[in-house]
Write a protein that binds this DNA or RNA. Structure first.
Length: 445
RNA sequence: CGGGCUAUAGCGCAGUCUGGUAGCGCGUCCGUCUGGGGGACGGAAGGUCGUGAGUUCGAAUCUCGCUAGCCCGACCA
């Protein structure tokens, strides 16, 4: 993308309403614009990141064998009356009445709707196991939205639902989700620790929240520092392998790691003192196993092998995609702006022309721009008539992980400069070598 | 939902106490000089002062109502 043709309304000064770094930077980098309290428009740069995260979530869910579909944002109230949650959910649910005086609501989650879809189409245990998911906007009428997209009222979330014949099968689905989530977060370049949590209004017996450590997090967490040593790496996963998934769950959840809701001081005390950590975290996902709570309330049954109607065992699993954009920035920024991990960068390489209008610089930039694009390295070319400082500041703010700087001085020596946003380290390379180097950096991403 | 605060140009703010017809910085537009970390100089555009009523010869400024937004707390992906 050429910056002169893009829509990137960056701000030099910090808007007054932003209290934390991610909110501030999303506004300054022109990623979002507030429409109302807790409701945002996603401007091109923010939208690009959001879609990139969505894509990663899709890929990892489908790798785990989960099936995508799309449910609506507006739902009929009757389904929620059936589960009993129409009354339980309270003011957080946005209730709407249509022109025929029918009670509707803007979905805060989708257990009822998915259960309705399931029960109307699935009759036999032979159709199980089944996990359906979607990525859709949700609305929860928070009393006090804050921190930009981290606690919005409207937010984009992946929510998935598994249907299984037995509790054992459903627990495997639970484990499968835990594994797929670990992979998902790691691909995005963040560490999210599964912590034993409280089930809240979803209900259920087993649940883990995934917490990303950050000083500005809203949750207080207690953990054994050994959990931060764990890394998923590039191990091969067979998502149908019950023992393997169970093993990974145990590996990642056997150490003490809890939010303040489930914190147990006596248990925590058993962790060696030098490994006890108390910190803050951002919740970026949660998985639940809730048994037959919804299937019984809504009559979602299949005929079992013995012919008897059997309520299915279910669980639900969510990743806050729009929140992740903010969380990623919380974990990846400095005083100058955002530092995207390679896996989620909206533009992979920034291209800075230090002297727009200089024919050698223009020609070199044009060649690099085409070369980067041809290699799928989605470049952002700053071709504005701006001084060097302004271009550097813009690139730093929007957070391209790598920057190629092209100026008359270097070109005279046949080189351009490749700079890491994260370390600030530069190397002088020929334009061809710089292209090859960028391709190499992104080869595994 | 309790407590605190704010609303003046795209963004950040002053002006309000003491009423007299709106200003600064950044950004934007034009021009010149510049050219490796938000450069300099000259010129220009841009505001129903959140909104409704009231007081007054006159309201951004005083009074009352309303709305929106922010912060702290209790609640939540």
């Amino acid at each position: 993308m050429r910056l002169t043709r893009y829509f990137l309304p960056i701000l030099k000064e910090t808007p007054a309403e932003a209290a934390i770094a991610s909110h501030r930077l999303m506004l300054r980098a022109g990623m979002i614009r507030q429409a109302a309290s807790g409701i945002y428009s996603w401007l091109p740069l923010g939208f690009k990141v959001l879609k990139r995260l969505e894509q990663i979530v899709h890929e990892e869910q489908q790798r785990a064998g989960h099936i995508p579909l799309l449910m609506p944002t507006l739902q009929p109230a009757d389904l929620w009356r059936e589960s009993g949650r129409y009354d339980d959910y309270g003011q957080e649910m946005l209730r709407i009445r249509d022109r025929h005086d029918r009670d509707m609501l803007y979905g805060p989650t989708n257990e009822e709707l998915i259960t309705d879809i399931f029960r109307s189409s699935v009759r036999s245990y032979k159709d199980l196991p089944l996990t359906l998911y979607h990525i859709q906007w949700k609305f929860r009428d928070e009393v006090r939205p804050r921190f930009g997209v981290m606690r919005g009222r409207e937010f984009y979330m992946k929510d998935g639902y598994n249907f299984d014949l037995t509790k054992e099968d459903a627990l495997h689905a639970y484990n499968r989700h835990l594994v797929s989530y670990l992979r998902t977060y790691e691909r995005m370049g963040i560490q999210a620790i599964p912590m034993r949590a409280d089930s809240g209004p979803i209900g259920g017996e087993d649940t883990h929240e995934f917490l990303m450590l950050a000083d500005t997090g809203e949750s207080e967490v207690f953990y054994d520092s050994a959990v931060t040593e764990l890394s998923f790496g590039d191990r091969m996963i067979d998502y149908d392998d019950v023992a393997q998934c169970q093993g990974i769950l145990e590996e990642f959840t056997s150490r003490y790691a809890r939010t303040d809701e489930t914190h147990d001081a006596a248990e925590f005390a058993k962790v060696p003192a030098e490994r006890q950590r108390q910190a803050r975290g951002i919740e970026v996902g949660q998985i639940f196993y809730f048994g037959t709570k919804y299937s019984q309330a809504m009559n979602a049954v299949v005929n079992g092998p013995d012919g008897a109607p059997t309520p299915v065992h279910m669980g639900s699993h969510g990743i806050g995609v729009s929140r992740l954009v903010g969380a990623l920035i919380e974990a990846n920024h400095d005083d100058n702006g955002i530092i995207w991990p390679e896996g989620v960068a909206p533009f992979k390489v920034g291209l800075v022309n230090l002297k727009q209008g200089d024919s050698a610089a223009d020609t070199a930039c044009e060649g690099l721009y085409q070369g980067l694009a041809a290699r799928g390295l989605d470049p952002l070319y700053d071709d504005r008539e701006e001084r060097a400082g302004a271009k550097f500041a813009t690139m730093d703010l929007v957070g391209c992980p790598w920057r190629i700087t092209v100026g008359p001085r270097g070109l005279a020596a046949g080189t351009v400069e490749l700079t890491s946003r994260r370390t600030g380290e530069s190397e002088e390379l020929s334009p061809e070598a710089a292209l090859a180097r960028c391709a190499q950096i992104y080869a595994g991403v």
